[in-house]
Design a protein around this nucleic acid. Structure first.
Length: 281
DNA sequence: GTCCAGGTTTTTA
DNA sequence: TAAAAACATGGA
Protein backbone atom coordinates (compact mmCIF):
# COMPACT_ATOMS: atom_id res chain seq x y z
CA UNK A 1 0.00 0.00 0.00
CA UNK A 2 1.55 3.25 -1.11
CA UNK A 3 0.42 6.61 0.27
CA UNK A 4 1.36 10.09 -0.74
CA UNK A 5 1.20 12.47 2.21
CA UNK A 6 2.62 15.59 0.65
CA UNK A 7 5.07 16.56 -1.98
CA UNK A 8 8.31 15.36 -0.39
CA UNK A 9 7.40 12.89 2.30
CA UNK A 10 6.20 9.52 1.08
CA UNK A 11 5.42 6.39 3.03
CA UNK A 12 4.83 2.69 2.60
CA UNK A 13 2.60 1.01 5.16
CA UNK A 14 2.87 -2.48 6.63
CA UNK A 15 6.59 -3.02 6.11
CA UNK A 16 7.73 -5.75 8.46
CA UNK A 17 11.23 -7.16 8.90
CA UNK A 18 12.96 -3.96 7.93
CA UNK A 19 15.25 -2.36 10.47
CA UNK A 20 17.22 0.46 8.87
CA UNK A 21 20.07 0.41 11.34
CA UNK A 22 20.54 -3.34 10.91
CA UNK A 23 20.17 -3.20 7.14
CA UNK A 24 22.28 -0.14 6.40
CA UNK A 25 25.02 -0.81 8.97
CA UNK A 26 25.62 -4.49 8.26
CA UNK A 27 28.43 -4.06 5.77
CA UNK A 28 26.51 -4.55 2.52
CA UNK A 29 26.41 -0.86 1.53
CA UNK A 30 28.61 2.14 2.16
CA UNK A 31 26.70 5.29 1.26
CA UNK A 32 24.27 5.71 4.16
CA UNK A 33 24.84 7.91 7.20
CA UNK A 34 22.83 7.93 10.40
CA UNK A 35 21.68 11.42 11.37
CA UNK A 36 21.50 12.80 14.89
CA UNK A 37 17.80 11.87 15.12
CA UNK A 38 18.33 8.25 14.10
CA UNK A 39 17.26 8.66 10.50
CA UNK A 40 19.36 7.51 7.56
CA UNK A 41 20.47 9.66 4.69
CA UNK A 42 21.68 8.08 1.49
CA UNK A 43 22.11 8.41 -2.24
CA UNK A 44 20.90 5.96 -4.88
CA UNK A 45 20.73 6.64 -8.62
CA UNK A 46 21.02 10.45 -8.40
CA UNK A 47 18.41 10.59 -5.65
CA UNK A 48 19.03 11.75 -2.10
CA UNK A 49 16.65 10.55 0.58
CA UNK A 50 16.26 10.44 4.35
CA UNK A 51 14.72 7.18 5.52
CA UNK A 52 13.13 6.23 8.81
CA UNK A 53 10.64 3.78 10.28
CA UNK A 54 7.66 4.47 12.52
CA UNK A 55 6.38 1.09 13.58
CA UNK A 56 5.65 -0.66 10.31
CA UNK A 57 5.47 2.58 8.35
CA UNK A 58 8.47 3.20 6.14
CA UNK A 59 9.04 6.94 5.72
CA UNK A 60 11.07 8.60 3.00
CA UNK A 61 11.78 12.31 3.16
CA UNK A 62 12.89 14.17 0.07
CA UNK A 63 11.34 11.67 -2.34
CA UNK A 64 8.49 11.97 -4.79
CA UNK A 65 5.84 9.37 -5.14
CA UNK A 66 7.36 8.49 -8.48
CA UNK A 67 10.80 7.95 -6.87
CA UNK A 68 9.15 5.70 -4.35
CA UNK A 69 7.80 3.46 -7.06
CA UNK A 70 10.76 3.57 -9.45
CA UNK A 71 13.65 3.58 -6.97
CA UNK A 72 13.04 3.09 -3.27
CA UNK A 73 10.50 0.28 -3.06
CA UNK A 74 12.74 -1.79 -5.26
CA UNK A 75 16.02 -0.81 -3.57
CA UNK A 76 14.71 -1.84 -0.15
CA UNK A 77 13.22 -5.02 -1.61
CA UNK A 78 9.90 -4.18 0.02
CA UNK A 79 7.86 -6.80 -1.83
CA UNK A 80 9.87 -9.82 -0.72
CA UNK A 81 8.54 -11.97 2.11
CA UNK A 82 11.45 -12.08 4.53
CA UNK A 83 9.39 -13.81 7.20
CA UNK A 84 9.17 -16.83 4.97
CA UNK A 85 12.90 -16.79 4.19
CA UNK A 86 13.63 -16.59 7.92
CA UNK A 87 11.44 -19.59 8.61
CA UNK A 88 13.13 -21.62 5.89
CA UNK A 89 16.62 -20.68 7.08
CA UNK A 90 15.83 -21.04 10.76
CA UNK A 91 14.93 -24.67 10.19
CA UNK A 92 18.32 -25.40 8.64
CA UNK A 93 20.42 -24.79 11.74
CA UNK A 94 19.79 -23.68 15.35
CA UNK A 95 22.70 -21.22 15.35
CA UNK A 96 21.38 -19.62 12.20
CA UNK A 97 18.02 -19.29 13.91
CA UNK A 98 19.79 -17.44 16.70
CA UNK A 99 21.55 -15.10 14.28
CA UNK A 100 18.23 -14.32 12.58
CA UNK A 101 16.57 -13.59 15.91
CA UNK A 102 19.43 -11.24 16.78
CA UNK A 103 18.79 -8.96 13.77
CA UNK A 104 15.56 -9.97 11.99
CA UNK A 105 15.30 -6.57 10.32
CA UNK A 106 18.18 -7.15 7.90
CA UNK A 107 17.28 -7.08 4.23
CA UNK A 108 19.49 -7.57 1.20
CA UNK A 109 19.37 -4.28 -0.68
CA UNK A 110 19.09 -4.19 -4.46
CA UNK A 111 22.11 -2.07 -5.20
CA UNK A 112 23.29 -1.04 -8.62
CA UNK A 113 25.76 -3.65 -9.89
CA UNK A 114 28.40 -1.15 -10.97
CA UNK A 115 28.37 0.53 -7.57
CA UNK A 116 28.55 -2.86 -5.84
CA UNK A 117 31.48 -3.89 -8.03
CA UNK A 118 33.49 -0.74 -7.32
CA UNK A 119 32.60 -0.73 -3.65
CA UNK A 120 33.69 -4.28 -3.04
CA UNK A 121 36.88 -3.87 -5.06
CA UNK A 122 37.65 -1.03 -2.66
CA UNK A 123 36.67 -3.18 0.32
CA UNK A 124 39.53 -5.64 -0.05
CA UNK A 125 42.02 -5.63 2.83
CA UNK A 126 40.28 -2.50 4.11
CA UNK A 127 38.01 -1.48 6.99
CA UNK A 128 34.45 -0.22 6.71
CA UNK A 129 35.01 3.42 7.80
CA UNK A 130 37.82 3.76 5.25
CA UNK A 131 35.79 2.06 2.53
CA UNK A 132 33.03 4.61 3.11
CA UNK A 133 35.53 7.47 3.01
CA UNK A 134 37.12 6.35 -0.24
CA UNK A 135 33.74 5.89 -1.92
CA UNK A 136 32.61 9.31 -0.74
CA UNK A 137 35.75 10.88 -2.20
CA UNK A 138 35.27 9.00 -5.47
CA UNK A 139 31.72 10.32 -5.76
CA UNK A 140 32.78 13.88 -4.96
CA UNK A 141 35.60 13.70 -7.48
CA UNK A 142 33.83 12.02 -10.41
CA UNK A 143 30.10 11.85 -9.63
CA UNK A 144 27.43 14.34 -10.65
CA UNK A 145 26.60 17.02 -8.14
CA UNK A 146 23.04 16.52 -6.89
CA UNK A 147 22.85 19.27 -4.27
CA UNK A 148 25.24 21.18 -2.02
CA UNK A 149 26.58 18.13 -0.28
CA UNK A 150 25.61 15.08 -2.32
CA UNK A 151 27.05 13.44 -5.41
CA UNK A 152 25.96 10.46 -7.47
CA UNK A 153 28.12 7.37 -7.83
CA UNK A 154 30.21 7.94 -10.98
CA UNK A 155 29.36 5.78 -13.97
CA UNK A 156 32.09 3.92 -15.88
CA UNK A 157 31.61 6.52 -18.60
CA UNK A 158 32.51 9.34 -16.21
CA UNK A 159 35.65 7.47 -15.20
CA UNK A 160 36.75 6.15 -18.58
CA UNK A 161 39.50 8.74 -19.10
CA UNK A 162 40.81 8.64 -15.53
CA UNK A 163 44.31 7.37 -14.92
CA UNK A 164 45.87 6.02 -11.76
CA UNK A 165 47.36 9.39 -10.88
CA UNK A 166 43.93 11.00 -11.24
CA UNK A 167 42.56 8.74 -8.50
CA UNK A 168 45.34 9.64 -6.08
CA UNK A 169 43.10 12.10 -4.11
CA UNK A 170 40.67 9.36 -3.10
CA UNK A 171 43.51 7.43 -1.40
CA UNK A 172 42.40 4.02 -2.59
CA UNK A 173 46.01 2.87 -2.67
CA UNK A 174 46.83 -0.26 -4.65
CA UNK A 175 43.13 -0.67 -5.49
CA UNK A 176 43.16 2.25 -7.93
CA UNK A 177 44.41 0.11 -10.81
CA UNK A 178 41.71 -2.45 -10.06
CA UNK A 179 39.00 0.23 -10.19
CA UNK A 180 40.33 1.36 -13.55
CA UNK A 181 40.37 -2.15 -14.95
CA UNK A 182 36.73 -2.49 -13.93
CA UNK A 183 35.96 0.89 -15.53
CA UNK A 184 37.54 -0.26 -18.76
CA UNK A 185 35.88 -3.65 -18.94
CA UNK A 186 32.42 -2.47 -17.93
CA UNK A 187 32.73 0.72 -19.94
CA UNK A 188 33.55 -1.11 -23.16
CA UNK A 189 30.89 -3.72 -22.56
CA UNK A 190 33.46 -6.48 -22.23
CA UNK A 191 31.80 -7.16 -18.89
CA UNK A 192 28.01 -6.91 -19.07
CA UNK A 193 25.88 -7.15 -15.95
CA UNK A 194 22.70 -8.06 -17.78
CA UNK A 195 24.30 -11.24 -19.05
CA UNK A 196 25.21 -12.27 -15.52
CA UNK A 197 21.60 -12.32 -14.34
CA UNK A 198 20.89 -15.59 -16.07
CA UNK A 199 24.33 -17.22 -16.16
CA UNK A 200 24.92 -20.28 -14.00
CA UNK A 201 26.44 -19.08 -10.74
CA UNK A 202 29.89 -20.53 -11.28
CA UNK A 203 30.08 -19.10 -14.78
CA UNK A 204 29.04 -15.66 -13.55
CA UNK A 205 31.73 -15.73 -10.87
CA UNK A 206 34.44 -16.62 -13.39
CA UNK A 207 33.11 -13.94 -15.72
CA UNK A 208 33.46 -11.25 -13.05
CA UNK A 209 36.88 -12.54 -12.08
CA UNK A 210 38.29 -11.55 -15.46
CA UNK A 211 38.50 -8.09 -13.90
CA UNK A 212 41.86 -7.57 -12.29
CA UNK A 213 41.38 -7.23 -8.55
CA UNK A 214 38.16 -9.24 -8.49
CA UNK A 215 38.53 -12.59 -6.76
CA UNK A 216 35.89 -15.03 -5.51
CA UNK A 217 34.79 -12.94 -2.55
CA UNK A 218 34.30 -9.68 -4.43
CA UNK A 219 32.57 -11.55 -7.25
CA UNK A 220 30.14 -13.11 -4.81
CA UNK A 221 29.40 -9.72 -3.25
CA UNK A 222 28.60 -8.24 -6.65
CA UNK A 223 26.32 -11.16 -7.50
CA UNK A 224 24.54 -11.04 -4.15
CA UNK A 225 24.20 -7.29 -3.55
CA UNK A 226 24.14 -6.04 -7.14
CA UNK A 227 22.45 -8.80 -9.10
CA UNK A 228 20.14 -10.33 -6.49
CA UNK A 229 21.72 -13.77 -6.72
CA UNK A 230 20.54 -14.67 -3.23
CA UNK A 231 22.14 -18.12 -3.41
CA UNK A 232 25.59 -16.46 -3.31
CA UNK A 233 27.56 -16.80 -0.07
CA UNK A 234 30.54 -14.41 0.10
CA UNK A 235 33.22 -15.76 2.42
CA UNK A 236 35.52 -13.21 4.04
CA UNK A 237 37.60 -13.46 7.22
CA UNK A 238 34.52 -13.12 9.43
CA UNK A 239 32.56 -15.78 7.58
CA UNK A 240 35.54 -18.13 7.64
CA UNK A 241 35.74 -17.80 11.40
CA UNK A 242 31.97 -18.06 11.78
CA UNK A 243 31.70 -21.25 9.75
CA UNK A 244 34.55 -22.88 11.65
CA UNK A 245 33.44 -21.85 15.12
CA UNK A 246 29.65 -21.51 14.93
CA UNK A 247 28.82 -24.06 12.21
CA UNK A 248 31.44 -26.83 12.58
CA UNK A 249 28.82 -29.37 11.48
CA UNK A 250 28.01 -27.60 8.21
CA UNK A 251 30.10 -29.09 5.40
CA UNK A 252 29.30 -26.53 2.76
CA UNK A 253 27.31 -23.32 2.52
CA UNK A 254 25.00 -24.87 -0.07
CA UNK A 255 23.33 -26.59 2.88
CA UNK A 256 21.73 -23.18 3.52
CA UNK A 257 19.87 -23.49 0.22
CA UNK A 258 18.67 -20.92 -2.30
CA UNK A 259 18.74 -18.13 0.27
CA UNK A 260 22.29 -18.81 1.44
CA UNK A 261 23.22 -15.20 0.74
CA UNK A 262 20.59 -13.94 3.15
CA UNK A 263 21.84 -16.43 5.73
CA UNK A 264 25.33 -15.11 5.14
CA UNK A 265 24.19 -11.60 6.00
CA UNK A 266 22.58 -12.66 9.29
CA UNK A 267 25.68 -14.66 10.21
CA UNK A 268 28.11 -11.91 9.20
CA UNK A 269 26.28 -9.30 11.28
CA UNK A 270 25.87 -11.61 14.25
CA UNK A 271 29.57 -12.43 14.17
CA UNK A 272 30.71 -8.84 13.89
CA UNK A 273 28.52 -7.89 16.84
CA UNK A 274 29.92 -10.79 18.92
CA UNK A 275 33.68 -10.80 18.34
CA UNK A 276 34.20 -12.46 21.73
CA UNK A 277 32.87 -15.69 20.21
CA UNK A 278 36.14 -16.03 18.32
CA UNK A 279 38.59 -15.07 21.06
CA UNK A 280 40.24 -18.45 21.38
CA UNK A 281 41.47 -19.77 18.08
C1' DG B 1 56.62 1.34 16.00
C1' DT B 2 53.33 -2.71 15.08
C1' DC B 3 49.05 -4.60 13.79
C1' DC B 4 44.89 -4.88 11.32
C1' DA B 5 41.09 -4.08 7.91
C1' DG B 6 34.13 -7.72 4.28
C1' DG B 7 41.20 -9.89 -0.50
C1' DT B 8 43.80 -10.41 -4.56
C1' DT B 9 47.96 -10.72 -7.06
C1' DT B 10 52.68 -11.75 -7.33
C1' DT B 11 56.53 -14.06 -5.76
C1' DT B 12 58.85 -17.83 -3.79
C1' DA B 13 59.95 -22.73 -2.53
C1' DT C 1 50.48 -26.59 -6.55
C1' DA C 2 50.72 -24.30 -2.23
C1' DA C 3 52.17 -21.12 0.98
C1' DA C 4 54.21 -16.48 1.83
C1' DA C 5 54.81 -11.80 0.82
C1' DA C 6 53.41 -7.53 -1.14
C1' DC C 7 50.08 -4.20 -1.88
C1' DA C 8 48.47 1.78 0.19
C1' DT C 9 46.39 3.89 3.81
C1' DG C 10 44.99 5.37 8.35
C1' DG C 11 43.24 4.34 12.95
C1' DA C 12 43.96 1.64 17.30
Amino acid sequence: MINKNNKDIVTIENITDLNLKETLNCGQCFRWEETADGEFKGVVKNKVVTASMNGTTFILKGATNNDLVTVWADYFDTSRNYKKIQELLGDVHPTLKKAIAYAPGIRILKQEPWEALCSFIISQNNNIPRIKGIIKSLCELYGDKIDNENYSFPTPFKLIRAREADLEPIKSGFRAKYILDAVKKVGTGEVNFQQMKTMPLEEAREYLMQINGVGPKVADCVLLYGLQRLECFPIDVWMKRAMKTLFPDVEDYTEFGKYAGVAQQYIFHYSRMHPELFDEE
